[in-house]
Design a protein around this nucleic acid. Structure first.
Lengths: 170, 170
DNA sequence: CAATCTAGTTGGTGGCGCAAACAATATAGT
DNA sequence: ACTATATTGTTTGCGCCACCAACTAGATTG
């Protein structure tokens, strides 16, 4: 798999297994990931955004981090973030500002235009994913949500994180 | 969501819904896709491969297409594929050859080194995804496979494709 | 205050993607 | 058969994205 729809495994040339065709969980997950990633890429492109630009704007919806924090959250080199923010700033989507606490630091914030753009792109993307889920009846969507949540929670726990930190109130 | 782990929706500040925390299907799918995509990216990087290079090699496991076919399957411009194959060829992972049927066409094939490399990367990636699925008992993995297959088959059908073309024998 | 550390930018390199222009070959039209 | 048109692949030129190494300005520590 990885990129193509290869039929799982079991090269058993006895009886052609009747119409019980199904992807292995591994194949299913891999293909689905490419599909969803592609959806996001296309929607972002409609607004002239790369995936990275979109991630940048999405992060800025909630905070006004320094360049350094951005680099950590995005998992990029500082210099990559410089260029990323340069291009977004040139388009008027974000703005750089000084930090009161540290005169070396630079704070990055969403402009109104940037906020509008990321809202539009996110809405379209969510429609796409909702449409992808459409063929399933509600009960199975719930079941899928349950299974996916279990996977993500378990993965997060392995890394010492709590996926629902805002649960028990402070 | 899009990039960060936001807790679904429902801003209802009445009673904190007890430990019934769950991601929406949309959020779950989006996060999972990023996770799996990141896994593949990391494994590919271990072998100095980009995602695109990995897709190229993965496709070549099954066929020996022309440059043009590669461009269609990868969803890239012809000129992008030229560069892609150039770099892979320089590393000895693929080889170009003439087509008997059309003297304009160029066939691309995996070398032994390329085959070994993609096999190694794919194996590691499949381990990753299998590990991701580990927290689920077998019965739920099957259920997940069933749901994902339904989604992917429905999506493929919308585009006039059959996900299992080799099903009914010719 | 000097040594050191940190935040951000700059400059260089390379992969990746597109579009436009091109040579070689195929295919159609007449 | 011969010309017009279409297709295959490459080249060139552009921009984005990512890295590293080197640098400046400002903070921190001795």
């Amino acid at each position: 798999m990885v990129a193509s729809a290869s039929p799982a495994s079991s090269p058993d040339p006895r009886e052609p297994p009747p119409p019980a065709r199904e992807l292995s969980p591994v194949d299913g997950l891999a293909q689905l990931s490419f599909l969803v990633h592609g959806l996001l890429e296309r929607r972002a492109a409609e607004h002239e955004l790369s995936i990275t630009q979109t991630r940048l704007l999405a992060i800025l919806r909630d905070r006004t981090p320094t360049m350094n924090e951005l680099a950590r959250v995005l998992g990029l080199d500082k210099s990559s973030v410089t260029g990323l923010v340069d291009r977004a700033e040139r388009r008027g989507l974000v703005a750089r500002g000084p930090s009161a606490a540290d005169r070396r630091a630079v704070l990055v914030a969403l402009t109104d235009a940037g906020r509008a753009l990321v809202a539009a792109a996110a809405a379209r993307f969510e429609e796409d994913v909702a449409a992808l889920l459409d063929p399933l009846p509600a009960s199975e969507r719930d079941e899928l949500a349950r299974l996916l949540t279990r996977l993500l929670v378990a993965r997060a726990a392995e890394q010492g994180l709590d996926l629902f930190p805002s649960s028990g109130r402070p």
